[in-house]
Simulated assay, not measured.
Amino acid sequence: MAILMILLGLVLLLPGLCAGAFVVAFGLTEPKSLVDPELVLLWAVSIAIAAGGIFLIRGGRRRMRDRAGARDAAPDRGADRHPGDTPP
């Protein structure tokens, strides 16, 4: 599930990266377009979607880290030992 969250987060980052590139491109070539309300709204929505992608990536990484920590901290119950084995 964590891998799926990270992959979906990466896909959601793309609109924000694209919006950021267009903001820079339009700002350099046509500064008047930076005050167009429709474009500003579109860029804001795209950046909000990218922020959701960042939160998904962070959540997926946290889930993977917590799962790995729980696996490492689990006590060894001797599942691979047999009666009569000498302790390590």
Score class of each variant (00 low, 15 high):
A51W: 06
D76M: 11
M5H: 05
R71P: 11
L56M: 15
D85T: 03
V23F: 10
D85V: 08
G84H: 00
P88G: 11
T29Q: 08
V11I: 13
I49D: 04
R81A: 04
G53P: 03
M5L: 13
R65H: 12
V45T: 08
E30F: 13
T29W: 01
G60E: 03
S33A: 12
V35F: 14
L10P: 06
A79D: 12
R81E: 06
M1I: 06
P31C: 00
R62L: 15
I47H: 01
M1S: 06
V35Y: 08
P87M: 00
D36L: 15
I47M: 09
A79F: 14
H82L: 10
V35R: 11
S46V: 01
I3M: 08
V23M: 12
L28I: 07
A19Y: 03
M64H: 02
G27I: 06
R67G: 15
R61T: 12
F26V: 08
D85N: 08
I3H: 06
D66G: 14
V35W: 13
L4N: 07
L14I: 14
G53W: 01
A25R: 03
A79T: 11
G84C: 02
G9K: 01
G9A: 03
R63C: 07
I6W: 02
D85H: 08
L56K: 02
P31W: 00
G59I: 08
L7N: 08
P75T: 07
R77K: 11
G27R: 03
A79E: 12
L28G: 02
R65T: 13
A21W: 12
F55L: 15
A51R: 01
L41Y: 09
G27W: 04
V24M: 11
G60R: 01
F22A: 09
R61N: 09
G9L: 02
E30G: 06
G9Q: 04
D72W: 13
R65G: 11
L42H: 05
P75F: 05
S33H: 10
H82T: 09
I47L: 14
I54A: 13
L13G: 07
W43A: 15
A73W: 01
T86D: 07
L34D: 00
A70R: 02
L41M: 15
W43E: 07
A70K: 01
I54W: 13
P88D: 09
A79K: 12
V45E: 05
R71H: 14
A50K: 01
L14G: 07
E30H: 14
R65P: 09
V35I: 09
L14N: 09
T29G: 03
V11R: 05
R63H: 03
R77Y: 11
G20R: 06
P37I: 04
P37A: 10
P37Y: 05
R67M: 14
L12G: 08
G60H: 06
A51D: 04
D36K: 10
F55V: 15
P75H: 04
L28S: 00
G69I: 13
D76W: 09
V23L: 10
A73P: 01
R62W: 13
A73Q: 00
A25D: 05
R65Q: 09
H82F: 06
M64C: 00
I49T: 11
A79M: 07
I47T: 03
